[in-house]
């Protein structure tokens, strides 16, 4: 995997992520990317309902949220998380990226959208954009696998 300069919190600590996807494969894939950005996986969830619980428990810096999931879909979960935690930063990560879906996600609280298959360099830029001044980019790159 490509090497990236680490994206850290302002205090120099790794960004903590909650990854929400019903696919174990997709969660593993996103975890690998996050680690290559110098981030830390704080937790995982397989559906929207579990994501809400995990967010309340972990308070991650960022949530990467799939849309099509059993139990509760990602857009609804994003809305409920943001309603309870106004500071939450949710990035939707889905293969279903039509315009109406993206607009609905953004209107209901998501900060950005990344279409699957995810390109690491795209996700990296989106994370920096969403974190804005709350993150710093370290000079040294991470050692990717």
């Amino acid at each position: 995997m490509e090497q990236f300069a680490r994206v850290l919190r302002k205090d120099g600590q790794p960004l903590r992520y909650l990854i929400v996807d019903d696919s174990v494969f997709a969660r593993k894939n996103l975890s690998r990317m996050i680690e290559s950005f110098g981030g830390q996986v704080a937790g995982e969830a397989g559906d929207g309902r579990a994501a809400i619980t995990e967010y309340g428990r972990l308070h991650p810096d960022l949530v990467l949220m799939d849309i099509t999931m059993p139990e509760m879909e990602g857009i609804e979960a994003a809305e409920l998380i943001v309603r309870q935690h106004a500071e939450a930063r949710v990035i939707m990560v889905s293969s279903v990226g039509y315009q109406e879906n993206i607009v609905a996600a953004l209107q209901r609280g998501a900060r950005h959208f990344v279409q699957k298959p995810v390109k690491a360099e795209v996700l990296y830029e989106v994370i920096k954009y969403v974190m804005g001044e709350e993150c710093v980019v370290a000079k040294s790159a991470t050692q990717g696998s």
Binding site: D22, S23, V24, F25, A26, T68, S95, V96, Y98
Partner: peptide, 29 residues
């Protein structure tokens, strides 16, 4: 899981195109 995710990505991307062409429908996992 990998085959499931590949299917999800292929079909999700196709559905995206069809929705942007004016069709309205949803996919199940």
């Amino acid at each position: 899981e990998t085959i499931c995710e590949l299917a999800n990505q292929v079909i999700g991307n196709a559905i995206t195109t069809l929705n942007d062409q004016g069709f309205r429908f949803k996919v199940h996992p």
